[in-house]
């Protein structure tokens, strides 16, 4: 091999090496068939282009031009009647035959369904993860929850879950006074609790303010007497009477599940409904994670 070829292939090797290095540093699983085929394709591009073009460029160094000239000459340009390079001709024939075979008998054009393939992919996923998800312990759930949160929820709630200065719910605390006051004033009927709707104006004026302050403060200290109006549904401890109405003290699984499923429009803005786009395990994981966010 001559120097040019070695330099060329070295370049190809560096390119491929760098690609694999970067991909690996992102923790990518190259044994995934799609990833693997793409990587093989990349190698083929680099090696074949460099190899073949340098092979011909080398002929500029070593070979001499020649052959029988055609009669014509255009503006002084002649044309040899040389045969086509056999490697090229056979490759072409080869790809043409391969194409025919592929479309007619190998993978007949009407025999593939991308939707069918998606179904299989999902099924394979389920068998792989179902067991693990069933038995996930608390620590696993929190970790799962974190990665789901970062992909799905962080664009609104921020990567730290602080709600991006009031643009969405701040998970480091429960609710602000303004949020509670808004609910008291307008009532609410969107989360799908067994208790149904919360009526508006259960408290007014100073009462409402006291209640809001109390709830926003994490329901610590002395409970205002007016909170009795709320306790009938949310319980004296504000925990929502075992899932009958929202827990006002923390982000339990029922609350997160209901909000994620149904969405929520409140004082801060609107949160979209995910309907059935989250599995029960994912909801569990999310609430486990969100509960770790509260700052003390």
């Amino acid at each position: 091999m001559n120097a040019l070829m070695i330099k060329g292939l070295l370049f190809a090797a560096i390119l491929i090496g760098a690609t694999i290095y970067v991909v690996n540093s992102m923790n990518i699983d190259l044994s995934d068939p799609i990833n693997m085929i793409a990587m093989i394709g990349a190698v083929a591009i680099a090696v074949l282009t460099v190899g073949v073009s340098i092979k011909y460029i080398n002929q500029m160094k070593t070979d001499t031009a020649g052959g029988e000239l055609a009669d014509e000459s255009w503006d002084g340009i002649g044309e040899y009647k040389n045969e086509v390079p056999s490697g090229w001709a056979y490759s072409w024939l080869g790809t043409a035959i391969w194409a025919m075979w592929y479309m007619i008998s190998g993978y007949p054009v009407n025999a593939f369904s991308q939707i069918g393939q998606w179904n299989e992919e999902v099924k394979a996923y389920n068998t792989k993860f179902e067991e693990m998800h069933k038995t996930a312990d608390a620590a696993t759930l929190r970790q799962m929850g974190e990665s789901i949160f970062l992909v799905q929820c962080a664009p609104c709630h921020g990567t730290t879950g602080d709600g991006l200065s009031g643009k969405a719910q701040d998970f480091t605390s429960r609710m602000t006074e303004a949020q509670v006051l808004a609910v008291i004033e307008k009532g609410s009927n969107q989360l799908g609790y067994p208790m149904g709707a919360m009526p508006p104006m259960m408290a007014t004026g100073q009462d409402a303010k006291d209640i809001a302050k109390y709830i926003a403060g994490g329901m610590k200290g002395e409970q205002p007497a007016s909170f009795a109006a709320c306790a009938s549904c949310h319980g004296a401890d504000g925990k929502g009477m075992a899932g009958m109405s929202p827990n006002l003290t923390g982000y339990d699984e029922t609350l997160v599940g209901n909000v994620v499923k149904n969405g929520k429009k409140g004082a801060l803005g609107r949160m979209p409904a995910y309907h059935d786009r989250m599995t029960p395990v994912q909801v569990k994981a999310l609430s486990a994670y969100i509960q770790t966010l509260k700052g003390e």
Binding site: Q152, P155, C156, A168, L268, G269, R270, M271, P272
Partner: peptide, 11 residues
Amino acid sequence: GNYRTTDWHEN
């Protein structure tokens, strides 16, 4: 439209 809302788009 399924997972972002008016106020989010505004911001």
